[in-house]
Each structure stands twice: as C-alpha cells, then as structure tokens.
Design a protein around this nucleic acid. Structure first.
Lengths: 204, 204
DNA sequence: CAAGTTACTTACTAGTAGGTAAGTATACCA
DNA sequence: TGGTATACTTACCTACTAGTAAGTAACTTG
C-alpha cells in the first residue's frame, strides 16, 4: 500500500507521534504494556514498525512518553477541577467521573495497568508511574484536608490515608469491573467511596 | 546437565506438575501471564520447555491449571475460616490476612493480576477468573449478611455491594502497594476497610 | 536551486515465543 | 522377560519480538 505515491495521507507535519501515542495508549490500557507490540500499533496506523522507531527509538521510550502524556492530561484535568472553585464533595465527584469515563471506554487507568506489570517495566517507567500516583494522592490529600476543614467532608485518619484509600478503591474496582460486574460495579463502588467521605447525617 | 544419569533428581513419581505450577504461579503473580515464558519456568526447574509441554500442552492449559489450583486453595482457606466459627469481624480480619500474606511475599493476587490482562487471555481462563471472584464475593456476602444480623458488623447497602467494595479495595491496594507506599500502604487501607464494616461506636 | 532536514520506507538482524515430532531412560506389570 | 506407560530429552519449526542500516520522497531554508 503506497503511502508515498503523491502526498502523505496526513499533512505530515501534523503529529504522527500523537497518533502513535493515541493507539499505543488504547492498547496499553486494554491489553497492558506487554500485551501489545510495535507491529500492532504500526498496522493500525498503516505505517511500518521502523517508522515507529523513528518517533520512539525503544519501547521504553514509548512507555515513558505514554505515562508522561497521561500524567500531564490528568494533572490538567485536576487543575481544572480545582480552579472551578466547586465544593469539595463536588470536586471529589468530578474526580471519580474521570475514572468512570476511562472505564466506559473499555479501558482501565494506564498507570493502574502498569502497576500490575510494574516488575517487568524499565526503570524510567517505574519512576514515572510512582510520580503519577504521587500527583493523584497529593491532589486528593489537599482536597480532603480542605473539605474536612470547611465541614463539607468527614472521614477518619489523615488526608493522606484517605487519598490512598480512594485511589486504591477506584483502581481496584476499575480492574474488577472489566471482568466482573461491569460498569455498574464500578458505580456502586464509587458511590460507596463518596458516601464514606460525606459528613454523617444525624442518621434516622 | 545430565539429569537422567543415574536416577531422577526428585523421585520422579512426585509432582513435577506441582513444581511447575509453583514456579509459574510465582512468576504470574509478580510478572503477569504475559510476563513470563515456558523458558523461564523450565530454566528454573532445570528441565526443557518440551518437558513442560508434556505436563501442560499449551500455555492456556497452564493458565487454567494455575487459576484452578489457586481458587481451590483459596476456597479451602475460606472454608477453614468459616468452620472456625469465629465472630464475623474476626473472620473478616482473617480474610484480609490472606491478602496481606500474598503481598508480603512480593506478589499480588493471581486473579487480580489476570484481571488486568483479562482481554489478552484465552476464554477458558477468563471464565475461571470470573469464578474466582464469584467464590470470593459469595463467601464475603454470606459473612457480611450474618455479621449484620448478629450485630457484629454494620454497613450501608447490600451484602453483595459490601463484598464488592471489599474485594475492590483489597485488590486495588495490593496493586498500588507494590509500586507505591509498600506493605504499610496495604495495611492502612485494609484497616480502613475493616473499620468501615465495624459497628459504629457511640462516637466520643 | 542546491543542501539539508524530516518522515518515513525496504530489507534485514538476532533473539525469543509457543509448540511439535521422534527418540530414550526408567518404572511397572503380566 | 518383554511390553507398555511415564516422564522426560534432543532437535526442530514457524511466528513474532524489538531494533537497525541504508535508502528515498517531499518539504524547508540559504
């Protein structure tokens, strides 16, 4: 299939790198880092594997780029939520919604997937994964602390512990939802998390 | 390395199959099903890959055997807990301890790992994974229902939902503990789960 | 309009994946 | 004692893995 015949399919200047990351990201989130190959990505984009190596010399490079972009996008979304100035419970809900959106696309969190494959991944990727969770839990800790202070949230233990519990529960229920129970499983688990951090009503 | 020289290393009648499963299980729980090969297992046992194929013709067969044995062991442990006749909170604690033991060995739950790789696994394995979680959540549901009835446990929602929340939280915190926060992360998450299902004290 | 630079291609490599066929040492049984 | 079953081995095979070297068409700049 000659792509070089007259002019390149996409203006060529535009981001082939981004398209590669798009496809690789989807494959990584559905099949895992060890579950897809350069050949898979190349075939889907109609280019050769050598073309891929031009953009990402090694698979470790691709992996790091994947996490970096994912972390950046995630961080931007968190900043947007924070900047909205909404109440803490509403911000927490929006945080959960990010995860729900990923799951709805049949994926799991990129870094949740990579966490499973952690021991098989190159060092650069391992560091990047830890940074992702760091980012998440720092943001959540701040939110929980602020919510507790203004009374819109209530929970036992430190904000750090709370943040850890939230990410664990969300990552875990994403993981299981794909194999067992579907998206509604995630929803009930997420609702429970939200409820756990809501101020206790007088209780009938 | 001649193993056939005089007599076989292990009486030969004894379970080579079991030894294969032992090694494969450890590799699967640390590196994932796509993260190890027949060559890895064979090298560790000092036999050839062809020897492996004698016991488990295909990797899918090995995978199914892995899950079957794991489920059986797990099921037996749950039965033992149930048979102890201990109070519901104590039984729940022992359930959590099973997970803690797995993590302490540097592993994550076999089926948690396989849940991540779910879409890449053969159909037989997928079914077996669902059965594992079914087993877990059925047992937990029964326990939660009994505990609520006798007042030793308290929680919102159905026992099924509670069971789902517990497995999600435990699987998730196992996953993250290996990459971020270590075993203590799991412990704080597990303690929080236990506390969530404890009857509420009068609260100072 | 020539000389780069960019973004690929073709054509290959070495290593590893899962899997198979045929042979062999040992144990078990009639 | 001879035959059969068990538990392997040696020696392959095909497909795929990440990765590389060298070539090339099209844009970009001096």
């Amino acid at each position: 299939m000659p792509r070089h015949s007259s002019k390149r399919a996409t203006p060529d200047s535009h981001g082939t790198s981004d398209q590669i990351l798009d496809v690789a990201e989807r494959l990584a989130q559905t099949r895992g880092f060890n579950g897809f190959s350069y050949a898979d990505v190349a075939a889907e984009l109609g280019i050769t594997t050598a073309g891929l190596h031009y953009h990402f010399p090694t698979k470790a490079d691709l992996g790091r780029a994947l996490i970096d972009r994912y972390s950046k996008t995630f961080g931007d979304a968190l900043q947007a939520i924070e900047a909205s100035g909404a109440a803490a419970p509403a911000q927490l809900q929006r945080y959960v919604d990010i995860y729900a959106g990923v799951l709805k696309a049949g994926r799991i969190c990129l870094c949740g997937m990579f966490a499973a494959e952690y021991t098989t991944l190159p060092d650069g990727m391992q560091k990047a994964i830890r940074s992702f969770f760091d980012l998440n839990e720092k943001w959540l800790s701040r939110l929980l602390a602020a919510g507790r202070k203004d009374g819109s949230l209530a929970f036992e233990g430190s904000p750090q512990e709370g943040a850890g519990a939230i990410t664990s529960a969300l990552e875990g229920s994403m993981l299981l939802a794909r194999t067992y129970g579907g998206a509604e499983r995630f929803k009930t688990a997420a609702d429970r998390v939200l409820r756990d951090f809501a101020p206790k009503k007088p209780k009938k």
